[in-house]
């Protein structure tokens, strides 16, 4: 039986080892390479024939797994992709679906083992969690924030001022202030810095 050729992309060595173990534990898979940056995916794809990629999204070197997924889908449409992350950032799921990533797996929060996800993905299934993990932030949960509030929060964590946030999101400054005020009310935080730090630490928003 032809083995599924897998490429692992994750900047954390321990995560790569875990994924390597998953792949090696099954006779159905052949590990092609395990690399630590999404920046070199195009080189490995040009060199090797790959059927499945397990792609971490947030890399320590600033490279973006979702950008690499988009490159793969545009240039190698038959290759199956599983995006993995430990961040609760909700927009990752949306963007993954928009790119056409077949499956999505949360490293800590998913109850299904990755091996099951891999098998279902190779079988043609698309496996996505119902929603991002719910993380407690202050007095509320991350699920209490609206999409618009999350968008503002994402920009807020970059240290942008209200006028910059308004320009990036193409909304008014008053709308930005209103969203921030609502989030502060929900979380009970005293100021935007506290809100931004907590959101980043908990991985609720990740500015890519």
């Amino acid at each position: 039986m032809k083995k599924t050729r897998a490429l692992i992309v994750d900047d954390q060595k321990i995560s790569r080892q875990l994924f390597e173990n998953f792949v090696r534990s099954s006779d159905k898979y052949e590990l092609i390479r395990s690399i630590d940056t999404a920046k070199m995916v195009d080189i490995y794809m040009a060199r090797y024939s790959v059927d499945l990629i397990i792609m971490d999204i947030v890399m320590g070197d600033g490279s973006n797994g979702l950008d690499a997924c988009e490159y793969v889908k545009n240039n190698y449409p038959d290759v199956k992709l599983i995006a993995v992350t430990s961040m609760a950032e909700a927009s990752f799921i949306e963007r993954s679906k928009a790119i056409g990533v077949e499956s999505f797996w949360y490293k800590e929060a998913s109850r299904e083992p990755l091996l099951d996800i891999m098998e279902r993905t190779i079988a043609g299934e698309s496996v996505y969690p119902d929603s991002a993990p719910v993380i407690k932030i202050g007095l509320t949960d991350s699920s209490d924030f609206s999409n618009a509030e999350m968008a503002v929060l994402r920009e807020l964590t970059t240290g942008a001022e209200n006028t910059e946030i308004a320009a990036r999101l193409q909304i008014s400054v008053n709308t930005v202030k209103s969203h921030i005020r609502h989030m502060l009310d929900k979380t009970g935080f005293q100021n935007r810095t506290e809100l931004a730090i907590e959101a980043r630490l908990k991985g609720i928003v990740v500015p890519l």
Binding site: I14, S86, K107, G159, E161
Partner: peptide
Amino acid sequence: LKRMNEHLKELNSTIDSYVIENEILNAK
């Protein structure tokens, strides 16, 4: 507020390291 935003920008780079270390810890 301007100082807070600049502080946030500086903090962003250190938070990335913190998050990465947190991930490593969870994996360990």
